[in-house]
């Protein structure tokens, strides 16, 4: 492979990473907004959020991308730059998957924590921000890490729409060299390295966040066990005072 072709691949890597970062940000916002809405006290909010999740989880990411590229422009009279169209389709789809993670983690927080917040007359938003989220977020990191790798794999779909990402640059190089094995092996390796780096990054983040709430990483039940000993300790201390 010549330097020119490598340059093409590098430009593809850059586009993939940009798309990954933007759509991961959008997906995070969507998953927290929708996931929190699914624990809302008004049924209509819960219903709408559930409807959103079912629709976007039910359809395929690639169909969504086609829809955003081809149906949105004539329907609404405006067309998005490919980068934003890809971000929108991927962010909304993977956000729907993420909202399930957020909902699950919020529901897994010990109900006594929520009741404690009510007893202290916190507003619902304060409860969410000060009690539920700090305990739920560290538990979300491992599933989010898997979802991020899925999202990375999903970004390759935009190459079908002719966006110059890593997979697309692989196709170009194949056309230039008239041989496939070498270039596709490189492309797969690059994707694997990015995925590996992302997994490592998320593991570091998990460690830091779990340290923040005083649990060891890698133990899904660690939070609950640690909480039990903690409350036991407080109870014992109170007993001692009385």
């Amino acid at each position: 492979m010549t330097t020119g072709l490598w340059e093409l691949v590098l430009r593809g890597v850059w586009t993939t990473i940009q798309l990954l970062v933007y759509s991961a940000l959008l997906a995070t916002v969507v998953s927290f907004a929708v996931g929190m809405a699914r624990t809302h006290r008004l049924w209509i909010v819960r219903f709408l959020a559930g409807f959103y999740t079912e629709v976007f989880r039910g359809t395929s990411a690639l169909v969504m991308i086609f829809w955003v590229f081809f149906v949105l422009p004539p329907a609404f009279g405006w067309q998005l730059v490919p980068m934003w169209a890809g971000t929108l389709a991927l962010g909304l789809t993977y956000g729907a998957y993420g909202s399930e993670i957020v909902r699950g983690a919020l529901n897994a927080v010990d109900p006594a924590q929520r009741e404690g917040g009510i007893a202290l007359s916190f507003t619902p938003w304060q409860r969410m921000r000060l009690i539920l989220l700090p305990q739920a977020v560290p538990e979300m990191i491992p599933p989010f890490s898997n979802l991020l790798v899925e999202l990375l794999k999903g970004t390759s779909l935009v190459s079908i729409m002719g966006m110059g990402d890593l997979a697309f640059s692989g196709n170009l190089v194949r056309l230039a060299l008239q041989q496939s094995a070498e270039i596709y092996t490189y492309i797969l390796l690059i994707y694997f390295v990015i995925a590996f780096a992302l997994t490592r990054l998320m593991r570091g983040l998990e460690k830091r966040l779990k340290h923040g709430v005083g649990t060891a990483p890698g133990t899904p039940s660690g939070a609950r066990a640690a909480k039990k000993t903690q409350t036991g300790g407080v109870g014992a201390a109170e007993g001692g005072v009385a």
């Binding site: 790798v149 990375l152 794999k153 999903g154 970004t155 390759s156 779909l157 190459s159 079908i160 997979a167 692989g170 196709n171 194949r174 496939s180 094995a181 596709y184 092996t185 492309i187 797969l188 994707y191 694997f192 995925a195 590996f196």
Partner: peptide, 13 residues
């Protein structure tokens, strides 16, 4: 950990 799409291209070509 690698995209199915690129694997498809790999096998297909």
């Amino acid at each position: 950990n690698t995209p199915l799409l690129v694997q498809l291209f790999f096998l297909f070509y």
